[in-house]
């Protein structure tokens, strides 16, 4: 029983990482219906910027976090302006394939600049642990868990309660009508990308702190898992990304803990296939009838 509960904690902690990344995924998808496959690599970019800010510029951790989020937000906006905006009138497939191209560009660009070798993220928050009822909880696990929950509420608040959020939702429903109502569509999309990228940077730094190892391809696997998480919860729905992230983290951990680590990815991707077959709108999604 203790082992099971410990595995739940392990699962929730890796799930919060997926949730953090999935939040950015799902928000961009929710607004412009683009699956931004480069999101996992923006996450990696954020981790590198955080590391450089701490090791080269000697910034304190929270300053480095803010700087990395800001730099990565600008980076996300540049990507949007250069790669996605010109394609806004093209087919969704064109944008999707461009996103894959951008993903490769970021991975290989990082490798070119920083080299293919692994870096150890500076351990500025020493990892401590507490034993509660025989269960081991890490300080960093707690930080990641609560960061992802707080960020989810902030995002939910922005989208549901602010003018910006209303603009986002209106763009999501109908771009042309939004323009007629005086919404600046370009700016709204830009801000969406900025927020999504900043979230990815936060996730990158959390992962750097917790898992230590960072390298140019580190965004690929978590990016895919986060995508599965977003689809699982219902892509485009912010609480869905959270629930999806925790669910994927838990499933993966249980498979690794009671079966074999080697099967965990296969199980996760099988779940993606099952969801797409059975309930494509995801756990929290409503089935909308396509209008012809």
């Amino acid at each position: 029983m203790t082992q099971f509960l410990q595995q739940v904690i392990n699962g929730l902690s890796i799930g919060s990482v997926y949730a953090l990344i999935a939040l950015g995924y799902t928000m961009v998808y929710g607004i412009i219906k683009l699956i931004n496959f480069a999101h996992g690599d923006i996450f990696m970019f954020g981790a590198y910027i955080g590391m450089i800010a701490i090791t080269s510029f000697k910034l304190p951790f929270f300053v480095a976090l803010v700087v990395a989020m800001a730099v990565t937000a600008v980076f996300g906006v540049i990507i949007e302006r250069v790669a996605y905006k010109p394609l806004r009138k093209s087919s969704k497939t064109a944008a999707l394939i461009t996103a894959i191209g951008v993903s490769f560009l970021i991975q290989n660009g990082t490798q070119l600049v920083m080299g293919a070798n692994i870096y150890a993220f500076p351990q500025v928050i020493p990892n401590q642990y507490f034993d509660v009822f025989g269960l081991r909880i890490n300080l960093l696990q707690l930080i990641i868990f609560f960061t992802s929950i707080v960020l989810m509420f902030i995002l939910q608040f922005i989208v549901k309660k602010t003018r910006l959020g209303r603009a986002m939702r209106s763009v999501a429903v109908d771009k042309d009508a939004s323009v007629l109502m005086g919404v600046n569509v370009d700016n709204t999309i830009t801000i969406t990308f900025a927020i999504g990228s900043a979230l990815a940077a936060a996730a990158g730094i959390m992962v750097g702190l917790y898992y230590i190892k960072i390298y140019p391809y580190m965004g690929f696997a978590p990016g895919l898992k986060a995508f599965v998480a977003a689809v699982f919860g219902g892509i485009g729905i912010i609480p869905g990304a959270m629930i999806g992230g925790f669910a994927i983290g838990l499933i993966e951990t249980m498979v690794a803990g009671y079966g074999s680590t080697l099967y965990k990815d296969a199980v996760v991707y099988s779940i993606l296939i099952l969801i797409l077959l059975i309930k494509p709108s995801g756990l929290l999604g409503k089935n909308t009838k396509e209008k012809v």
């Binding site: 082992q3 410990q6 595995q7 392990n10 699962g11 902690s13 890796i14 992962v207 898992y211 190892k213 580190m218 696997a221 993966e252 951990t253 249980m254 690794a256 803990g257 009671y258 680590t261 080697l262 990815d265």
Partner: peptide
């Protein structure tokens, strides 16, 4: 797998 970074589930087991 070589790509794994999280060993917590295995180590707990």
């Amino acid at each position: 797998a070589d790509t794994d970074a999280d060993f917590s589930a295995q180590l707990t087991a």
